[in-house]
Amino acid sequence: ALTSEEAQANKIKRQAADRLVTMRLLKAMEVDGPWRLTDLGREYVQRLAQ
């Protein structure tokens, strides 16, 4: 079982991923993931790395 801290951390990650989907940086392969970068997401990560 998860501790409440772990459950809260998971919830925050899920919310962050959902937000990235609405920003078209990630796409969910199924309803509950896994997720992949979109073309736009790949461009963003490349800019981050520079």
Binding site: L2, K13, A17, L26, M29, W35, L48
Partner: peptide, 25 residues
């Protein structure tokens, strides 16, 4: 983006796919 979101983006980039635990019901 937030640091959390950037972290997820980098994780997805490095692994190819991003897997997150399913929330407890």
């Amino acid at each position: 983006l937030t640091s959390e979101q950037n972290q997820l983006m980098i994780q997805a980039s490095q692994s190819g796919t991003l897997h997150l635990p399913i929330e407890d019901p």
